[in-house]
Amino acid sequence: MIILDSLSFLVVAVISGAISGTIFGLVNLALVEPYLDRAIGIEVQNAVSAGEEVNPIEHVNYRFWQKGGEVVAGTILGMSFGALLGIVFVFGRKLIHGSNIKKALVLSGVIWLVIFMIPALKYPANPPTVGDPDTINYRQYLFISFILISGFTALGLSIIYHKINRKSSFKLLAVSVIYTGIIVGAFIAIPPNPDKITAPMDLVNGFRIMSMLTMTIFWVVLGITFGLIWDKLKPHEPTQFKTI
């Protein structure tokens, strides 16, 4: 029996996540920030129209601080998702043929689909000016519920899929149909986002497309980085002792 090297395994997951997350934050600065700046500009205009005083220099400094925060938060979020890919990879890598980069890419693609893309169809990303502060807890509850339903359904079905010792295309079709059925049920049963969109639709749609694009780039970069670092550190190989 081979015992996975814990330290190398942790390093692969966390470092690949940190690298991909930092790249994610920097890509967001270029692609998503113009939409965020425009949306925040509308919020500031609304505040000024409502009689609030806004100091332009303070506002610029504050936005600069938030943009730095975006990169740091990208690194943290990347480590988080790197940890998730690590857990999925260590249990799922033997089920996929090919190189470790291919395995990591396939598994990161599955995670992207299950915990990002499908929940995003129900609850797409919104720029500032769309969310009502009074509904934040409710919206967080709806969003996490949908992710958990999608994630745990996929996890449960993948376990059932591999427990059934029969090679047939029917098995794959059956679990796909069950997953789709449960997700369609969740789409119908879980309430929609309660907030009305008052921002210009070209801003909202442009923001959603860019958000989806950069999230997709993140998961591709994470899969490649994870596979490359795994190949470099080889946590699955027994420790080699050198004779001096």
């Binding site: 480590m79 998730l84 260590v90 033997k94």
Partner: peptide, 29 residues
């Protein structure tokens, strides 16, 4: 047939990193 044993402590640590990071970035109020 070679079997690879997955260290439970490492998995536990990664679950902590996952939950803590998601909470900080996505949920902390």
């Amino acid at each position: 047939i070679s079997e690879t044993k997955v260290p439970k402590a490492a998995i536990g640590l990664l679950i902590f990193v996952l939950c803590f990071g998601l909470f900080i970035v996505g949920y902390d109020q």
